[in-house]
Design a protein around this nucleic acid. Sequence first.
DNA 1: CTTGACCTTCCAGCGACTGGAAGCACTACA
DNA 2: TGTAGTGCTTCCAGTCGCTGGAAGGTCAAG
Lengths: 141, 141
Amino acid sequence: MNIGTAAERSGLPAKTIRYYEEIGLLKPDRSDNGYRDYSAADVHKLRFLQRSRSLGFSVEECRQLLSLYDDQERESADVKAIAQAKLAEIDRKLAELAGLRDMLRHLVANCHGDDRPDCPIIDGLSGEGDLRSAAACHGKG
Amino acid sequence: MNIGTAAERSGLPAKTIRYYEEIGLLKPDRSDNGYRDYSAADVHKLRFLQRSRSLGFSVEECRQLLSLYDDQERESADVKAIAQAKLAEIDRKLAELAGLRDMLRHLVANCHGDDRPDCPIIDGLSGEGDLRSAAACHGKG
DNA sequence: CTTGACCTTCCAGCGACTGGAAGCACTACA
DNA sequence: TGTAGTGCTTCCAGTCGCTGGAAGGTCAAG
């Protein structure tokens, strides 16, 4: 399929897809007319790239993760090591995101515009202290 | 406190902290000697910036989120609208991260290096199809 | 056979840092 | 009091990851 279709299906702009090719993340075939020709597997990779980039993984990290797919003949231990390191990082990110979510939920639920000027809600946003103590500033007692 | 201490406590490089000041995310006081002087609240903001940037939020999004803290006199409806929009995005990110984690867990648990060349593990990584069907390629069943 | 959408390459610019130079401020220690 | 060392300052340049735009080739429709 052409790059436009791949872009649509992956959620990435065509510009970005060409850039990913330029830096060696992906090598689509070329049609006789010189157009890039993406396979379903390419689109899978692109979708994966879109997801993991938007979640804060660097292009180099994405390259490593993609290598789990591409380098079928590498040592199983390597694959596991990479995947496990990423797992730990994902778990950390999950915890941080959950913290952010809880704080914002609390903010939505408890703030009515009557905030005092130094409400320590940011304590929660910054991941310090616990949610309930930050909550105290808005519960109006 | 000086920028070095703030850097240490926030997890951000001093360079980045100065850059955040330059683009107006933060305005620390200045000591008589011209050194930047960070308050505990500043460090909270920096920690928050460190977290949310690493989770894939843009600087502009972070600016909005910080405004929940800074613009105490803004309409409560505004605050809620911003927070709720971010909540939806965070929930989406949480779901995607959880998907990524589950796939990698499966990879760690089930791949022994005997993969066939087009194992569709990437289907799961790309967020398409469900985990169990991707799992089938490795379960050797 | 032209219009318009889509593709190509190339080059420039932007967002978000990051590194390094040149120089001032502070602490410590002879 | 001098001086070494560390940390701070500004400024400028470079990098990473895109992103926009120009100039031009390709293709399906009317």
